[in-house]
Nucleic acid binder design. Structure first.
Lengths: 183, 183
DNA sequence: CCGGTCGATGAATAATTATGCGCGTCTTGC
DNA sequence: GCAAGACGCGCATAATTATTCATCGACCGG
């Protein structure tokens, strides 16, 4: 029955129009300030996803996206964990340090700042530990260790210069300007 | 000017009706599932805060509360981040998260100590994340990020001086003295 | 004491979001 | 092959939220 079809599909990216649309929504919401469903609809249309406001209302509800002072924001809590994988085209990356890190950064890294020999990473609520685990697994020499809160990861490095390197590398990873692996 | 009055008021708990109302909103939102501003208005009335829906819309926006699938919820993760950044660029209420922070500090901050560029806050068990969220939402430039444990919040700032400023500002907020130390 | 401001609201209203219905498509069971 | 059931989605419309406009009361500088 239907379930089987879905499984097969999820195996190869998301050919299901509904999933593709939702993935696009996720990216748009993460990337820019969306203030209304009408605005979102227009952007989606531009991306080739013609859609109705009513459907967006349902999509956003199902995805758990919330609307606040600054427009729509990504889901909070476990909801985020379930959906993130569907969002980043970087599907669930198989083991292997860097690959997994790429997906984690794409999906969960919001911002990064350095302070002394530390780097603070922000993520949607609840995703911090996931990102931290991925970063640990990557085995970068500059990363002495990480501590994850709910939406923040504290990365401890040997010194300020190392912190700067980590910061830069993560941002490049996120932007997709990928290059070799970091230290 | 007016500011002086406000400072004086914050000195004595929250005698300002607006602040009291917002504090009540904070508690209600945290305690139960509020699905609409009308519903919230009714609850507030029951608590002695007669208020208009229009005002609630403004309160909610200023406090950074978001609305999602399950009703209104306090800002977390990205929501808080966006709120904070919104203050800098646009003419959005700079004092945005302050209302929430005031209440949070009053209610949960037990002690504060600094260490290098960090500030460690203690709270009653379980309240750490709430306080951290409020602090994030306030959007202080000195606060790069926070990590909450169960009863401890680690606040990371750019440097020792900033840590000292944050420490001082929080204690003043709690004592009700001033609200000046933003930065 | 008197205009001139400013912040906080309420009322009314515009803008946005949620939802009841119904249609068309796809699947399954017989 | 055909009826039943499950979905996804658009339309129209109810429900909610944001915003504009007008007040009101508390200062401020004269």
């Amino acid at each position: 029955m239907r379930v089987l079809r879905m499984i097969m599909h999820s195996t190869q990216e998301a050919s299901d129009p509904k999933e593709r649309r939702r993935a696009a929504i996720l990216e748009l919401v993460r990337a820019q300030r969306i203030r209304s469903q009408g605005e979102l609809a227009r952007l989606l249309t531009k991306l080739g996803h013609e859609v109705n406001q009513a459907t967006l209302s349902r999509d956003l509800r199902d995805m758990g996206v919330v609307k606040g002072a600054g427009g729509y924001q990504l889901p909070t809590g476990e909801a985020a964990l379930q959906l993130a994988s569907a969002g980043s085209g970087a599907a669930t990356a198989p083991a292997g340090g860097s690959a997994a890190l790429y997906g984690a950064v794409q999906a969960w890294l919001s911002t990064s700042v350095t302070a002394q020999n530390q780097v603070l990473l922000r993520t949607p609520a609840g995703a911090a530990s996931t990102l931290a685990v991925a970063l640990d697994a990557a085995g970068w020499k500059d990363v002495l260790g990480t501590i994850a809160g709910d939406d923040t990861v504290l990365v401890v490095t040997p010194d300020p210069r190392a912190a700067a390197r980590v910061h830069k590398a993560l941002l490049e990873l996120k932007r997709g300007t990928t290059q070799g692996g970091r230290a």
